[in-house]
Design a protein around this nucleic acid. Sequence first.
DNA 1: AATAATTAACTTGTATGCAAACAATTTATA
DNA 2: TATAAATTGTTTGCATACAAGTTAATTATT
Lengths: 137, 137
Amino acid sequence: MIMKIEDCIFFQLSRVSRAGARYWHQRVSVFGVTSAQALLLLCLTEKDAVTSKYLGSKIEFDSATLTGLIDRLQNADFLERRNNPNDRRAIQVCLTEKGKATSKKILKIVEKENQAFLSGLTPEEAMILKALLKKIG
Amino acid sequence: MIMKIEDCIFFQLSRVSRAGARYWHQRVSVFGVTSAQALLLLCLTEKDAVTSKYLGSKIEFDSATLTGLIDRLQNADFLERRNNPNDRRAIQVCLTEKGKATSKKILKIVEKENQAFLSGLTPEEAMILKALLKKIG
DNA sequence: AATAATTAACTTGTATGCAAACAATTTATA
DNA sequence: TATAAATTGTTTGCATACAAGTTAATTATT
């Protein structure tokens, strides 16, 4: 019954997630993208020319959030929407040349920045943390 | 170098934090508050009549975010701003009767909801996760 | 005391994040 | 095949989040 705010998982997740987003944003802002935009570009290096629905299932973003993210990345010429010939409801999200170049740069630093952000933990603790987070949801 | 999005700590933290916020929001929305507002009210059960600066250091919210949060909680009559006699720049954030009653209700469920949200983990794993999150930042 | 530097909170502008409602299209079913 | 149901993506409205700049008040320095 005596639960301090520091022991509340919802608070701790929010706190650390925000700290991570701030840190990650600082690293990728030199490429002209935000932290969420960088994650979306990373996603597209794994598989290009995908639907918004696919992206939603992959990074678990709401469709409305994705519309906005795709809008801003498209306006900044990192990607483009193409018509899907098989389904005129769907779109194809495709990286532009600028988007490909930028996502490669992000891919190059992501592992190092993961370690840097978790430098307060031992490598074993970092592995455990990632495994536990993966197990939730 | 081959880092999939599922192995990126920034993505995992964002994903699980959002899932937690959605879950927590569902539980506290019956009290008329959002997930962030519920955390702020919890914070005030520990110590009432505090400055915005104190709240910022306690839950690590930006001052601009806090102004908005306090605004909305004040408009819904959960708390009020009082003048601080010692420092006319500062405010005193004080729970109203409605705020006290509501924060007590939230305090009553927070432990159970913590366990429910982490039901996919063993109690040991849940403890380890909380300890590791606490260690970051 | 007069001025400079600092501080607390607020304002502004932009980007998530999500619920709910919507339009266009496709699929299922009568 | 005509219509109902489901699906894809967008729009709208609201609530975080945060950087940068502002105002009023306090503290430090000359």
